[in-house]
């Protein structure tokens, strides 16, 4: 009985945020003919973050200077392409009403900005001496960055797969 009453009340509760005009206006605005630029650009920093860790692992294995140089380039380009992907994502978040109003979009934002900070630290540390930087702290940073890029990517994917944000036609 109490259960039923509670159920009845649950059905009556209306979320004021979902009533907001524009809540469903989630179509991407930063796009080329409907294909969102953010989804296109994030592939680069994500892959390069893994590359930096891979290069560090190969340096640990072999000690070849080549891999330390590959590491500094992968870490640097991960950061710079990350800034570009961050710019498209930030514009999308701020300009599209249906994305700006959703809490999970902001969660992805703050995790991604921290990831950029870590990617920048990994690069800046290496340009002071790319070979000495790898062992042991460079590889630890790269490994942590891989974990962070997975957390960021998962939360970004959640926006697309669960809420269909930033897609061409909205949901």
């Amino acid at each position: 009985m109490a259960q039923e009453m509670r159920q009845a009340r649950v059905d009556e509760l209306v979320d004021p945020i979902a009533q907001h005009p524009g809540y469903d206006a989630t179509e991407s605005k930063i796009a080329l003919w409907g294909h969102p630029l953010h989804a296109m650009t994030v592939a680069f920093p994500v892959a390069l973050t893994f590359c930096a860790f891979g290069a560090d692992a190969l340096y640990l294995l072999s000690g070849e200077t080549f891999w330390a140089r590959a590491g500094v380039w992968a870490a640097g380009t991960a950061f710079l392409f990350g800034l570009a992907a961050g710019a498209t994502g930030t514009m999308e978040l701020l300009m599209v009403r249906g994305i700006r109003i959703r809490a999970p979009a902001w969660t992805h934002f703050v995790i991604a900005v921290l990831l950029l900070s870590l990617l920048g630290a990994n690069w800046g540390y290496r340009i002071q001496g790319y070979e000495a930087a790898v062992l042991p702290y460079g590889i630890l940073l790269s490994g942590f960055n891989v974990l962070m890029v997975m957390a960021t990517g998962w939360h970004g994917g959640k926006l697309v797969f669960d809420y269909r944000l930033g897609t061409s036609k909205g949901s």
Binding site: W106, T107, V113, S117, G120, A121, Q128
Partner: peptide, 25 residues
């Protein structure tokens, strides 16, 4: 969405810029 998270974002972004300006690697 409009206070706490933007504050966190600005805090981290300004901190990142400071890391590079002061070169605290």
């Amino acid at each position: 969405t409009f206070v706490v998270t933007p504050a966190g974002v600005v805090a981290i972004a300004s901190g990142t810029l400071l890391i590079f300006l002061r070169e605290v690697f």
